[in-house]
Design a protein around this nucleic acid. Structure first.
Lengths: 292, 292
DNA sequence: CAGGTGCGATCACCTTCGGCTATGGACGTC
DNA sequence: GACGTCCATAGCCGAAGGTGATCGCACCTG
């Protein structure tokens, strides 16, 4: 049986009022419209639901049988609407380890007071996914390093110089800054080949300078990187903002002064027009403006 | 929120198939129609429910949230349909005490094997309601004495001579038959004034013969009548078929041979076109034909 | 008992919905 | 690079669902 929940609402209202005209007023429809829909409902369920009396209506046995079911269906429908709305407000924010730069809490608190509150849910993504989960749908918005692959739109969050993390006791340690050329003989810790462009960018830069870079090891998290550095398996390039996460146990970070800065962006799918996404982007933009 | 249950069925089918075209085939609708309804559903709930992928679709978080609710609503809707159908099949048969004349069980068994089985539910009605519950909606069909008041249609079940029940030791007791004139001096046990035409008919008959009848007492059940007879409060006219219920403890019943026979009918409301009612009437007609 | 009143049903009409066929565009496959 | 698959869109049509006006009926009321 197929029923429009509206017809059930109509029926319940009439059952409660025991009066078609009054129910019609309560439902903000005309009395003929309500009468017709009631007839249609009776036709659909294949039974008379109401006794029409001179001054009002009353339920038939079939009507009494329907009433509790109708109420239950309506209640469950409301539950569904609420849950779906809540799910739609939940927004997964993909971030690589620790690259939020302190923005995320500010954005969250700004979103909480909106008229349709969005609940951001931060989710760490593996380093080898340059889209931070946008591509596979794991995230709805992402904080990632430009360029973000795929059909995405972006908002620039920060622009940071590149640094290089050096193992304990490395000869360049302690320098204020080094040129990229000084690193060309070093083995590099790189992302695994699956990472694609993210891995490729500085390898290409090295290649451009006439010396194909040597990969001393592959890493996919801050901890692995730290371990590899302590092992002396190579050096690693990183945004200077990430330096504090590595600069301990003798590891030092030195600025590389002749590489273009890397750009941290908020990214979202270009075809994603959901209000929650727009709201998140907008809140982010406002937080940035307030800080400038 | 208002949703057509059909749209929920569509959504569940698509969620199960993870494929719009396949779901459309299963639902026997065209693929564009299904696509359009899915869009409409998404618009109504205010959230995207499906990720459209190159080879199929998958549920969004909102879709996952909706799915169990949708299934529950559909299940409850089916329950409602079943219960309403059952209620519509149940039919209340109003009868005065013991006037079924053995027809009702035969009618019941004939109805049980029909394609849409009707469940008759016999309900005794007070004697003072000549319509046997038809008028106040307490019954759907009734076995009653003609004429039945109200806008009803009838089917004649039996035609029985009138008899008179006499107190123990009454001078007329033991006669084979008596004329109505022989009773004109007796006090009569009558139905209460509320009974209307049922009470009025033989009072009028007496009046027609020039002697207003004297009412010796009012009765409204077989037991009260029996008690009143034993008390000697009067005599009572009745259909001869009801004689066995009173003829004990010295009470006797004698045929009155010059009154028109009374007619037992099956009655139902003239405007009642419900299938269950028609089926009951038809079954009754068939049982009568089989007995003739 | 005539006439007003309240109620649900019906009528004529208009807009929106839900279905169809045909076509388009994105993506994978051979 | 032609083809196949799949979902979306366009244009059309009948049915559904709404409206105000009106009808028919039972019930008060004077």
């Amino acid at each position: 049986m197929d029923v429009h929940s509206r017809d059930l609402r109509y029926f319940v209202a009439v059952a409660e009022e025991r009066h078609v005209t009054r129910a019609a007023a309560r439902l903000h429809v005309s009395q003929p419209a309500l009468s017709k829909q009631l007839r249609a409902l009776e036709r659909q369920v294949g039974a008379e639901l109401l006794h029409r009396l001179p001054h009002g209506v009353e339920l038939t046995a079939a009507g009494e049988a329907l009433l509790p079911h109708a109420r239950a269906v309506l209640a469950r429908t409301d539950d569904a609407a609420r849950d779906v709305a809540a799910a739609a407000r939940r927004l997964v924010v993909g971030v690589s380890t620790g690259v939020g730069r302190g923005l995320l809490p500010a954005v969250r608190s700004r979103l909480a007071v909106a008229e349709a509150p969005v609940e951001p849910q931060v989710r760490a993504v593996a380093w080898d996914d340059a889209s931070a989960g946008l591509a596979d749908g794991g995230s709805d918005v992402a904080v990632a390093w430009a360029p973000v692959p795929g059909r995405v739109r972006t908002l620039e969050l920060a622009r940071e110089p590149i640094g290089v993390a050096l193992p304990p006791g490395h000869p360049l340690a302690g320098r204020d800054a080094v040129p990229f050329a000084a690193l060309l003989d070093e083995p590099f810790l790189a992302l695994p080949p699956e990472a694609g462009p993210l891995r490729a960018s500085w390898l290409a830069e090295a290649h451009r300078r006439g010396r194909p870079a040597r990969v001393g090891g592959e890493v996919r998290s801050m901890e692995e990187t730290h371990e590899a550095l302590l092992d002396g398996r190579g050096v690693v390039l990183l945004a200077i903002g990430n330096a504090p996460a590595l600069a301990r146990d003798g590891v030092t970070v030195v600025r590389v002064d002749d590489l273009p800065p890397c750009v941290l962006v908020l990214a979202w799918r270009a075809d994603d027009r959901r209000p929650a996404v727009r709201a998140y982007v907008e809140a982010c933009r406002e937080v940035l403006a307030a800080r400038a």
